[in-house]
Simulated assay, not measured.
Amino acid sequence: MFSSKKRLDNAYKNAKVIDFDDDSKFILFSDCHRGDNSFADDFANNRNIYFHALKHYYDQGFQYCELGDGDELWENLSFDSILNAHRNVYMLMKLFHKRNRLHMIWGNHDMVYRNPNYVKKHLSTYFEPKVDENIELFSNITYHEGLVLKHCMTGQELFLTHGHQADWWNFLFWKWSRFMVRVLWKPLNVMGIADPTSPAKNYKELIKIERRTKKWITENNNLITIVGHTHRPRFPEPGNIAFFNDGSCVHPRSITGIEIENGAISLIKWQIATKDDGTLQIVKDLLEGPVKLLDYKTE
């Protein structure tokens, strides 16, 4: 699989299919890059916003689809240090999982999760020092390269994947990129120097990746495709190429995501806002939509 087209074809062909209807509710986040709470942990700045948002979606009965790069396993050697840094987040995700409302996709920064044996070994349980034994975490969880949400009544499909299939370097040479990040870019990141191989920090690469993805979408009957990877939110108007991007959870002081509810799709942002009395609150802003999914359907 040497071309973007073949890699995206493969992700779509092997995607897990999830049936849904107009009563179904999904929240899509990606690129959380949950780390170890060190200076290089980009997620740490937004973890309270993320936890509050995810708690809201859990209480409201949403299903959670994480579109890759949830865990930062390039900068960090093990999942244990990440779990210990953000335990409250994983306990909440565990609740989603226990109710079959958690759907996980692997990206280039957590590509080790495409190995079921790795997932079983590291994510099934965690050690709880209070009771001195292993406790269940994500038992029997499966990570996917892609998901297809298929509407029960209309047959309309939404293809969800991380999006690095259109980024040949970060798909084929992810182990080399991981090595470079660990030995070079992590310490430089602390000093504010960006990794030039990351499409989120290299505009020319970002444009190339988006162009390849759009080409694939047009060749597949304008299939609604929702990705992450570049960290740049995208929400097209009906009639344009149906290329969506949920953004990331490591924007400065905010997180973005995509909601699917009542048969419609929206781009949202959660951030901290100041109230008139000077106190702070976490609020959700609607950036785009809602637009009916059927408005994107092509015959």
Results as ranks from 00 to 15, higher is better:
residue 248 S to M: 05
residue 11 A to N: 06
residue 173 F to I: 13
residue 54 L to K: 10
residue 280 L to H: 06
residue 278 G to Q: 01
residue 277 D to M: 03
residue 91 M to I: 15
residue 201 K to E: 11
residue 81 S to T: 11
residue 69 D to I: 01
residue 243 F to P: 08
residue 96 F to H: 07
residue 10 N to L: 07
residue 209 I to M: 03
residue 190 V to I: 07
residue 55 K to L: 04
residue 120 K to P: 00
residue 207 I to F: 00
residue 182 R to M: 14
residue 178 R to I: 03
residue 271 Q to T: 00
residue 197 T to N: 11
residue 214 K to F: 06
residue 227 V to D: 01
residue 95 L to G: 04
residue 73 L to Q: 04
residue 30 S to W: 01
residue 75 E to T: 13
residue 64 Y to Q: 05
residue 37 N to P: 01
residue 144 H to F: 12
residue 68 G to A: 11
residue 246 D to L: 09
residue 17 V to D: 12
residue 228 G to E: 02
residue 11 A to M: 04
residue 248 S to R: 09
residue 96 F to A: 12
residue 18 I to V: 15
residue 114 R to D: 13
residue 55 K to C: 02
residue 286 L to Y: 07
residue 18 I to M: 08
residue 262 N to I: 12
residue 125 T to G: 05
residue 178 R to A: 15
residue 170 N to D: 02
residue 262 N to R: 15
residue 254 S to P: 06
residue 38 S to C: 03
residue 273 A to G: 07
residue 163 G to H: 04
residue 290 P to K: 06
residue 103 H to M: 13
residue 90 Y to A: 08
residue 138 F to H: 07
residue 217 I to N: 02
residue 129 P to S: 05
residue 53 A to D: 00
residue 45 N to H: 08
residue 151 H to V: 01
residue 84 N to M: 08
residue 35 G to H: 01
residue 114 R to K: 15
residue 227 V to K: 09
residue 217 I to W: 05
residue 171 F to D: 10
residue 235 F to Q: 03
residue 150 K to F: 10
residue 87 R to K: 14
residue 110 D to S: 07
residue 137 L to C: 01
residue 259 E to T: 06
residue 210 E to Y: 08
residue 80 D to I: 15
residue 23 D to Y: 05
residue 106 W to E: 01
residue 225 T to E: 04
residue 155 G to F: 05
residue 225 T to R: 01
residue 91 M to A: 13
residue 129 P to I: 10
residue 205 E to F: 06
residue 272 I to Q: 05
residue 148 V to D: 07
residue 102 L to F: 12
residue 86 H to Y: 08
residue 83 L to H: 09
residue 156 Q to E: 09
residue 203 Y to T: 06
residue 281 Q to T: 11
residue 101 R to S: 14
residue 63 Q to P: 01
residue 180 M to W: 03
residue 201 K to A: 09
residue 192 G to H: 05
residue 264 A to S: 15
residue 182 R to W: 10
residue 209 I to F: 00
residue 51 F to D: 11
residue 152 C to Q: 15
residue 263 G to A: 09
residue 211 R to F: 14
residue 144 H to K: 15
residue 142 T to M: 09
residue 21 D to T: 07
residue 281 Q to P: 02
residue 210 E to Q: 14
residue 197 T to S: 10
residue 40 A to C: 07
residue 13 K to A: 11
residue 298 T to C: 10
residue 214 K to I: 09
residue 76 N to F: 08
residue 11 A to D: 03
residue 257 G to Q: 06
residue 140 N to S: 12
residue 138 F to Q: 11
residue 285 D to E: 08
residue 64 Y to G: 03
residue 26 F to H: 03
residue 23 D to K: 08
residue 255 I to F: 04
residue 25 K to T: 02
residue 68 G to H: 07
residue 291 V to K: 09
residue 182 R to T: 08
residue 98 K to Y: 13
residue 147 L to S: 03
residue 147 L to V: 04
residue 290 P to C: 07
residue 226 I to K: 04
residue 132 D to Q: 15
residue 196 P to W: 01
residue 105 I to E: 02
residue 131 V to S: 13
residue 276 D to S: 14
residue 220 N to Y: 07
residue 61 G to Q: 10
